[in-house]
Amino acid sequence: MSNVLLKVEHLKQYFKLDRKSKVKAVDDVSFDIYEGETFGLVGESGSGKTTIGRSIIRLYDITGGNVTFEGKQASGKLKKEERASIARNMQMIFQDPMACLNPRMNIRDIVAEGIDIHKLAKTKEERDEMVYAILAKVGLAREHAGRYPHEFSGGQRQRIGIARALITNPKLVICDEPISALDVSIQSQVVNLLKKLQKELGLTYLFIAHDLSMVRYISDRIAVMHKGKIVELADAEELYNNPLHPYTRSLMSAIPTPDPKSEKQRARFAYDPSQHDYTTDEPKMREIRPKHFIYCNEKEFQAYQTEIA
């Protein structure tokens, strides 16, 4: 396996509601992302997927834990140059194509924002050329550069968002549900574009989504989140073929199939967290098969093992 690009250790992100109560949006989560892979993160709404992405990219001050990027510390207090380096090498693609572009700026200025902030171009011509080059990469014409966001469709806007993220030549791109707000025909367009760009530019993706079939299509490895914790982490095929954690199974049972006959037979079942008894035996991530991790306690671990044997 190639090098670890991003290492997340015991990441905690709590939000204070008032003086007494707080929300544990992300609670003690650890994972590695390898260079060149696509790491999928799935889970229901409110499970903390987006929060993980935003904590990694420093939009939130993390409550606890450690993030290491390219072997260097990437969380907590950092020097100005270190922050700039992370901002250049770690980028984000956002969910809502309507809200992610400033309506008062034209496409040239939106895409060139990274150039302006990090002073990557010396002349105006150089800046324009960089913008045109990246627009061409995402399938937009240079004539689009003078236009404003409201003149574009959802899919086009999402591609502009991708262009903006790629202008600084990042290594890791966090895709925060980049396709959830698009209709299905455009979803495939954007996902295929992301795949193409990954091949061309050697990008690493952290792909956050709740569309399981889409995540399976794009991801090499997938982590399933529930209530701020990763409950299962495995290679994409392994996870889809042998889901072990009851929550993962519940999620899998919810995937619709494009075949009316098998769709009719499909039984969905709900996940009931009370089936776990964690009062005496503390759960943690355990490797049940090579590279297949599951969040369980010792007793459950035994049960899972007999199940797959």
Partner: peptide, 28 residues
């Protein structure tokens, strides 16, 4: 908390830049 402001922040924009380039033009 709009995503285009978050995007500017992930790109490493300073507070001044965010206010002058993203917030003020939207309230003019």
């Amino acid at each position: 908390d709009q995503e285009f402001v978050l995007a500017a922040r992930t790109l490493g924009a300073s507070d001044t830049r965010i206010i002058m380039k993203h917030l003020i033009p939207n309230v003019v």
